[in-house]
Amino acid sequence: MADSKELKLKEKQEVSIPAEHTRPGPVFTPAVDIFETDKEITLLADMPGVAGKNLNIDLRDDTLTLTGDIEPFEGPDENDILVEYEVGKYFRQFTLSEVIDQEKIEADLKNGVLRLTLPKVEKAKPRKITVNAA
């Protein structure tokens, strides 16, 4: 694609969350895309460095919480020469206005991008009731 734009550097957004962590370290907000179709809500989140087992998705009442932990990947003998970005946890919370079918939620983490599909609850289908004549 010749017409695609140049990517600009964006600093990672650090957040302060109300509850303090037992383990100190910076916490970042992952960048997300959220879109909705008639059937579902899809959320895409950039969480580089988070392995599947360290990702926590929690939907309680109407609050969706994403938490991603990072395992240190630097070798023990490595010394920093240049540090342009920091590594830390990811945390983000959303309030959902739609009712979500909790059973059918799908999460897929690939190349550091989480794809979360939240299907909406199917509306009660009209049902015809036949009366049995005696």
Binding site: S4, K5, E6, L7, K8, K10, A31, V32, D33, I34, F35, E36, T37, D38, T42, L44, D46
Partner: peptide, 13 residues
């Protein structure tokens, strides 16, 4: 048909 609520992720070279 998707309606975007948020669009924070960026693409580019």
């Amino acid at each position: 048909n998707a309606r975007y609520h948020r669009r924070e992720r960026e693409a580019g070279r």
